[in-house]
Design a protein around this nucleic acid. Sequence first.
DNA 1: CGATAACCGAGACGGTACGTCGAGTCTTGGC
DNA 2: GCCAAGACTCGACGTACCGTCTCGGTTATCG
Lengths: 219, 219, 219, 219
Amino acid sequence: MDTDRQTPPSALAVEPHCAAPRRGRPRSEAAEQAIFAAIERLMMEGAGLGDLTIEGIAQAAGVGKATIYRRWPNKEALLVDAVVRLETPEPELSGSSARQDLIETLEYMRRRGLDKRSRWVLMVIFHQLHSLPELKSVYYDRVIQRRRQVIRDVARRGVASGEFRADLDLDLLAEMLVGAMLVRTVLWDDSPLDDPALPVTMVDALLSGLGGPAHAAAR
Amino acid sequence: MDTDRQTPPSALAVEPHCAAPRRGRPRSEAAEQAIFAAIERLMMEGAGLGDLTIEGIAQAAGVGKATIYRRWPNKEALLVDAVVRLETPEPELSGSSARQDLIETLEYMRRRGLDKRSRWVLMVIFHQLHSLPELKSVYYDRVIQRRRQVIRDVARRGVASGEFRADLDLDLLAEMLVGAMLVRTVLWDDSPLDDPALPVTMVDALLSGLGGPAHAAAR
Amino acid sequence: MDTDRQTPPSALAVEPHCAAPRRGRPRSEAAEQAIFAAIERLMMEGAGLGDLTIEGIAQAAGVGKATIYRRWPNKEALLVDAVVRLETPEPELSGSSARQDLIETLEYMRRRGLDKRSRWVLMVIFHQLHSLPELKSVYYDRVIQRRRQVIRDVARRGVASGEFRADLDLDLLAEMLVGAMLVRTVLWDDSPLDDPALPVTMVDALLSGLGGPAHAAAR
Amino acid sequence: MDTDRQTPPSALAVEPHCAAPRRGRPRSEAAEQAIFAAIERLMMEGAGLGDLTIEGIAQAAGVGKATIYRRWPNKEALLVDAVVRLETPEPELSGSSARQDLIETLEYMRRRGLDKRSRWVLMVIFHQLHSLPELKSVYYDRVIQRRRQVIRDVARRGVASGEFRADLDLDLLAEMLVGAMLVRTVLWDDSPLDDPALPVTMVDALLSGLGGPAHAAAR
DNA sequence: CGATAACCGAGACGGTACGTCGAGTCTTGGC
DNA sequence: GCCAAGACTCGACGTACCGTCTCGGTTATCG
């Protein structure tokens, strides 16, 4: 499915509304690149969300404001597209075992949480997610669902191989792992993500259970 | 505990800067109430974060802008105080067992996630947390740390009673539970918080472990 | 007189800049007509000067903007040419007497002042005359000087025939007559141009003089 | 009449719409002065009408754009008010004779036509007169009608004293004199206004009549 | 009791960014 | 080389808020 997807996934952007034979001067690919590059540059220079202005971006990109507004209907839509574009690709899972795959996924998230760019992306997402309803569905479909599916697939294989309990609630598993990583990534930036053993610790804790003797006896 | 807490916890607010005997007309308590009431009203009418402007709030509250700026140094500080003020009080834990206390804590979070007002509060928190460093520490000290302490206390008692494993990582426990609830609360608003059994399921999953026979054998 | 005037008097227009044999597709005569027709149409629909935009004209004419800019260097030049093109031809004077010729000239101006199209032309002239120095000389040479010459010729014949005083200041005569008509045309649009006797009244007043007995005695 | 007119005649301006007891901070008189001063300065530096921008004026006046838009609804209204404000006061007429008064009036217009500031004002008037209908009536009532009345009064006295013919058409007299001056002022800026004898020449020509012996015989 | 001082609503102030529009230029494919 | 279409940069438009600053007027406490 989706084998021929070359064009990058630009949601929210204003497509030239004509259907077939495209007339007139085509939009400049260079301008688009310059815009995204300017955003990334400003962002890396420490610009917060409120510091990113359309006028500033246009200036930094050497581009007219109209060129931006021709592509996106407003500031939010632009930021959203910039954010989606900055998302790092999903990791390739080794597939040696379900436990190992979970660990690799969490390790990917851990690294992402340490990367300035990725953390900035998450900030924007969390910021705009509720003020721009369109973004919600776009990001949900394009990023979140995709990741949930990865974990879900891993878990299914784990259940089949007997690594995971048969009555496993797949969503719950995903959320407990992802949620814990998000908390450490988004809520604290002096966050304890530096420990490379974190993914192993988390996965094993979840698989082995945290209950003690009294808990085991009660079952 | 905390029996003498009458004055609301207004951090970030600008206190009248003269220390000693205070002269002149005192600040109107009514104005303060009107401001908070206006924010809540606007919020309940569906105003997003970007729709909340100082001018709008002042107008809705029938209050001069200066009256707001006399109390808070800027827009963010006001929103933060409004948010902290809307925080529901912590639940009383029954203390019958550590497991039960965890479940009650999660049940409290679940209810909170279903409440429109509380969800709006979380939105603001997530939004402003990075753009206003002051908020970060205030909210961190005042809300997050307090909750972490509650869970930590519960867990400690659980370890002592043998309900929890002795090598329990308290922070990890807290984050996996809290993180999962936050994901369901903040990221999705069609979220599956409706299931009243959710807290029990989560706690028991974490305590019993999700590993299957193959996992158990490997240990 | 002027029997060979086929090509319209297009001053300010940009001639294809290669001098010699002209190659490639020749310019579309139809496009030119469409542009002028569009301007006239928009003008008659009540468009003020500020409402006439190049983009609007191009759209209304079904023509690309470049097609306009290939012919005129800027907006003002286009309007000027459009205006000159709308100028009605000079009247044929009967020549029966100098007084009669003056009256006929004023009558022509009176009618012109009652015509919406002509009044619009005058508006544009008065507007652009100072912001576009080129227009000034073009319009001056092509329209004003021509008319002054007509009146001057008439007056000269009048002096020769004894109808006019020998010490007549020709320019002053022209300006007093023309000026009065312009005032009624340009400054007021509820203007009293409806009276068909106006030209006769004006000419006779000027010729007979407005001085009374006391004035006559003083001379 | 109008003995108590202190407040300058600011038409088109947006008056604070509250009726009686004026609340809030009053508008800064200084800002208003700075705005007008900036316009005049820019104008004297040779700015054409198209070169006068709100942003430029605000900058030159050291004033926020909003401060301008709080007073005038748009650019045109501001220019109009600036123009009306720059109008020089009417001259005091000596009243020694009707002929003399007419000459003085024309001399005033001649001088005005030689003054850069006044010519600029006339340009703006002629420009905006048709694109901004409100201006038309304001300027008409406030300037043109007033001047017509002056000439009318003079002429009436002239008729009474026998200096002017009894059947004098007052409006026609005014328009022929005023029109001729306007033509020389507005249409040509290399205009022959330098001759100080011009007013005398014009008035005497009009009073004595330009007809020659043949014309006189025909009456 | 009167002065003093800080409060109050209202709204103007200088700025900054927004999103739109037009001018004049450039770049497609097509005739 | 022209044509229609429509992108491009630039810069002004008119609007909305921000955070500050007066206004006239209202309570409090202090002297």
